[in-house]
Design a protein around this nucleic acid. Structure first.
Length: 572
RNA sequence: CGGAGCGUAGCUCAGCCUGGCUAGAGCACCUGCUUUGGGAGCAGGACGUCGCAGGUUCAAAUCCUGUCGCUCCGACCA
């Protein structure tokens, strides 16, 4: 491509609305431009990268045994009512673009395709002999995000690869899931990310198992915790952890309510009572849908509301109001404890509150705290579970290692769906015994446009983007300085033609611009190899070769340059 | 949706508080000359419904009301 005819002008100054490096660089380098909130033009350079990413995905999907199709973006309301997700996606979360067509039928723009694909496969699959099946598509998705942000990172219209597997049973699903998991690893490796696959919460989509593929970058919105010893890794939303256990008192002491006027908060309590922080207890009162729940965690932990909500299987979980707390505990906020709560309050506790002798907790009386409390004697052992937020430095739940934290960008998410959609939408088959069985499904998503943004986020410097040869829009940026010089122009044209004949993708800067401008643009656009022709190289008939990732350049003959480029970019 | 902020030239912004001449700067763009390996210099030029609507006023980019758009912080997600 000749740069003189290329669309996507570079900007010298960062646009004020761009908050992250990737967003800013992609605008400055002419890869994207904004049309409205969360809606972007994929300019020519970006489209080439997206196509390359898509090609890698297609190859790995084929290896995993998935067949490509393309489903409609326009979907009928009826399918969503059948799966039971219409309300949630429209009225409740409002994430779906829905409207009426000219005949008055309500339709929507697909935010995801479980409904449509299940509809397709239920007509396709009749017998256990028809299974397994796996399909995928690369398509534009529409989500009216509550808050689009960071350019392509969270857009309202974005490109996604979504795959769906259909199996006869759990064992089949496990195999399909595993094939996809491995495909996702290969995709991440081929692109060249520094990434981690982590255990994930299944969220709204539902299902039994789930992994997220996280590209590590400081600006990532997700926190991942991983073990420094074994291979345990999980999204902080779901991560478990082991806390340090401490030697306990040999004998229980008599419980007493002690006055600690205005002492609220675990740290203050520990200091006031001169006890270790782990002996204190946080008891938080929540409103969970229509029930009241008291959640206890050790004083050195925090409650993880998502874990609590999942355990209780409720939609809305929020801290109770001060009035509610007063009426339930008879005390001001800050003095709640498990002893003497009304019977209708469900008490649940993190595992780590157990196993302590003579611990502290609120006395449900303003300014008073109970000390030397013991389960079994003073209060019944509550329902136990994992309700605390895992943190960096906690022990690994699987081994004796410690958890470390990193920020990540979620580029892929794979789920075992089970029979949630197949049952709701009657996607079933006859087994060998002529029994009707629901198909067992899995779904597997990758944000294609987000992958490009994540790469830039992970791989850039102060001058611009650093593409890997695998997904760079072009392999080579061919720069001709002093192009008004006929000899240089002739040489440059010849080299441009030669490189293309060799199967090398070239962006040819044939503009009559100055050296500084061309070099700056090249750094900004970030193609892996830069070739420069100028008066300096003219007499020798050579060309200057420079990698974007390296500082120094070398002077090579055209033949040598071609060989080197092919080596670097893995061509043929 | 709650909270905060911003809309003036293609981009980054000044001007607004305290209303008043023809609305400004830098970059980008066009012409000419000079320059020519890290975003050049000089001279000249083109580019604006000051987001939109209404109001106050002799007079509105500036004050008031409404509205639309965009960005950021929280809950959603690839």
């Amino acid at each position: 491509m000749r740069q003189s005819r290329h669309i996507g002008r570079t900007l010298r100054e960062a646009p004020k609305d761009a908050q992250t490096a990737a967003h800013s660089l992609m605008i400055r380098a002419g890869y994207i431009s904004q049309l409205s909130a969360g809606v972007y033009v994929y300019q020519p350079l970006l489209l080439r990268t997206l196509n390359k990413i898509s090609q890698i995905i297609r190859e790995e999907m084929a290896t995993a045994g998935a067949e490509e199709l393309l489903m409609p973006a326009i979907q009928p309301k009826e399918l969503w009512e059948e799966s039971g997700r219409w309300e949630r996606y429209t009225a409740v979360d409002g994430i779906m673009f829905a409207f009426k067509d000219r005949r008055g039928s309500t339709v929507c723009l697909g935010p995801t395709h479980e409904e449509v694909v299940t509809d397709i496969l239920r007509r396709e699959v009749k017998s256990y002999k028809d299974l397994p099946k796996c399909v995928f598509q690369i398509q534009t998705k529409f989500r009216d995000e509550i808050r689009p942000r960071f350019g392509l990172m969270r857009a309202r219209e974005f490109i996604m690869k979504d795959a769906y597997s259909f199996d006869a049973d759990e064992a089949g699903q496990d195999a399909s899931y595993e094939a996809m998991r491995q495909a996702y690893h290969r995709i991440c490796e081929r692109v060249g990310y520094t990434y981690r696959a982590v255990e994930a919460d299944t969220g709204a989509i539902g299902g039994s198992g789930s992994h997220e593929f996280m590209v590590l970058a400081d600006s990532g919105e997700e926190t991942v915790l991983y073990c420094d010893t074994c291979n345990y890794a999980a999204n902080q939303e779901r991560a478990e952890s082991r806390l340090e256990q401490f030697p306990q008192d040999a004998e229980p002491r008599p419980m007493e309510a002690v006055l600690g006027r205005g002492i609220i908060g675990a740290e203050k309590l520990a200091e006031f009572f001169k006890i270790p922080l782990w002996k204190t207890t946080k008891t938080l009162i929540y409103e969970a849908d229509d029930q009241m729940v008291a959640v206890m965690v050790r004083g050195d932990c925090d409650v993880h509301e998502l874990k609590v909500a999942n355990h209780l299987n409720v939609k809305v979980l929020r801290l109770a109001s001060a009035e509610k707390i007063r009426s339930l505990t008879g005390a001001e906020v800050g003095y709640a404890g498990p002893i003497g709560l009304p019977g209708h309050v469900r008490v649940i506790a993190d595992h780590h509150v157990k196993g302590r002798v003579n611990f502290e907790c609120g006395a449900n009386q303003t300014d008073y705290h109970n000390i030397n409390v013991n389960f079994g004697r003073d209060v019944a052992l509550p329902e136990l579970g994992d309700f605390k937020l895992a943190r960096e430095g906690d022990g690994c739940p699987r081994c004796q290692g410690r958890l470390k934290a990193a920020k990540g960008i979620e580029v892929g998410h794979i789920f075992k769906l089970g029979t949630k959609y197949s049952q709701a939408m009657n996607c079933s088959y006859l087994d060998a015994n002529s029994q009707t069985q629901p198909v067992v499904m899995g779904c597997y998503g990758i944000g294609v446009s987000r992958m490009a943004a994540a790469w830039v986020e992970q791989s850039h410097d102060d001058k611009g983007i650093l593409w890997s040869p695998q997904i760079a829009p072009y392999h080579v940026h061919l720069i001709a300085l002093n192009i008004e010089d006929e000899v240089i122009r002739t040489q440059a044209e010849a080299l441009y033609a030669r490189l293309q004949q060799e199967g090398i993708e070239v962006l040819f800067d044939d503009r009559p611009a100055r050296a500084g401008e061309k070099f700056s643009d090249a750094d900004l656009m970030g193609l892996p190899v830069r070739l420069t022709l100028s008066k300096r190289t003219l007499e020798q008939g050579k060309v200057e070769f420079k990698l974007r990732t390296e500082k120094d350049s070398t002077v090579l003959s055209p033949d040598e340059a071609v060989e080197k480029i092919k080596g670097v970019c893995g061509i043929r």
